[in-house]
Design a protein around this nucleic acid. Sequence first.
DNA 1: ATTAGGAACTGGTCTGACCAGGGTGAGGGA
DNA 2: TCCCTCACCCTGGTCAGACCAGTTCCTAAT
Lengths: 260, 260
Amino acid sequence: MGDERTKERLLKESLTKNESLTKKASLTKKASLTKKEQLDRYLRQKIISGSLIPGQALPSQRQLVDQFGLARSSVREVVQLLELDGLISTAQGGRSICRNTMAKYIELPVEGIGDNLAFQLQVMEARAFLEGEAAYFAAQRATDQQLIEIEKEFDKMQLRSKGLTTLDKAKADLRFHMMIAQSSHHVLITSFSQLFYNRYFNAIYGVLNRTLIKFGRYPDGIRMQHEQIYQALRQRDPEQARKVASEHIIYTRNLLESTD
Amino acid sequence: MGDERTKERLLKESLTKNESLTKKASLTKKASLTKKEQLDRYLRQKIISGSLIPGQALPSQRQLVDQFGLARSSVREVVQLLELDGLISTAQGGRSICRNTMAKYIELPVEGIGDNLAFQLQVMEARAFLEGEAAYFAAQRATDQQLIEIEKEFDKMQLRSKGLTTLDKAKADLRFHMMIAQSSHHVLITSFSQLFYNRYFNAIYGVLNRTLIKFGRYPDGIRMQHEQIYQALRQRDPEQARKVASEHIIYTRNLLESTD
DNA sequence: ATTAGGAACTGGTCTGACCAGGGTGAGGGA
DNA sequence: TCCCTCACCCTGGTCAGACCAGTTCCTAAT
């Protein structure tokens, strides 16, 4: 029994570095978790499950105090663990933000110059797949509030599109699609979309630029297609959402290819 | 200047995971460190420099509160950083202990069975080198208090040696040599010695067992050699300490070899 | 010399307060 | 109608002091 306690202590000691509180608890077979361990598990599960998406704020420390009956110093110690694991970032006054944990594992290939047509076409083809899947899951999982926000963004895009520069048009378009990605509540799709749009913004902008030069304005079908995407989300039709989101990008791609 | 601030924030954000506070401060070129950063640097330097050796206790949290003018919750947050980096381990009521950070990088070769003579001779040869270097640095760096402790341990070894089992004799011998390693204040020697003695304890015990079987007691020279080591430390004579410590092990090794 | 008990010291947690930075919304002016 | 500024509220960061629970050390008794 002394040996048992020694084993227990040595095991705990071997676990002191970079192990979450919940992993320690499960390895030492504790019958129940402390409140700190419960909070640690709760936050990690929200992040890993996609319930919290990159860019979203965590509940505030004071909210977690109330919710878990912990002191703020105890909450802060748990939050520090997550921050050190790279799951969140905090800044004074600025809320704790869920991080894109994919960022440190994936370095998307160095972008070719943004105005290379062949490269732009490939970026569009990747978008077709990515946004189709995002729309599929968004139709299933978007909250009602998220659908409202997407509609508002869609309306804003329409109302403001006349007065925008090409750069602003490109940004608005990506904001719309990023909102769909986030409402998919799929942590891999959300994370990858963020990285993809950031990395290949120049190519995406170049696509829009070429298109506007050829047609002088947004091609007629684009607006209707955005609306179709939105309607498929609103009707909670995953297959339809995937179909129209993917076709929207393929349509734009094919318009572009025909400029040769 | 907005861009400057954005860069600063992005840099800080990229540093939020597994970076010590002092590294963050140096990368962001801060003119001065916060008290938490000062404490972080102070503790890391004590550990990395060997000023604190594996197994030794850190100053208590309350002592650090007084010393740095920080709140205990702030001290605890810094201590948690070190714990997560694997530099220390803490347990309720039990002090914060400096860890052997070498342990996770080095797996000494699987020990042969402890009673293999050829293997035992090699372990002794490695000891000769290791303990010579330890004595060399201990002669330079041991504190007066450490010398007193070593003398007490040496005296205890003499007084108690008659009544001890072979196992206890082996343990006492290693305790003596481990104290010398620790008083070298050389973090690599201290760390490696701990790992080495733990790993090869069976071989070291086997050496002593063989020796006692052949002679019926400690060979006459052993006691005098331990005293010579101690005297060289006390006289702060590094070359002499290295010489007698190394010769002590070689002497024992050669006695053993001649049993064939 | 050993063992047991108590005191002191340790880490862990809590309560409540205050400081400093960021975000949001409303109102006013161009 | 849009943009800018200001104020308020919410956020994270830090502090002081208290209490709980575990460990260590010292002293006294056997």
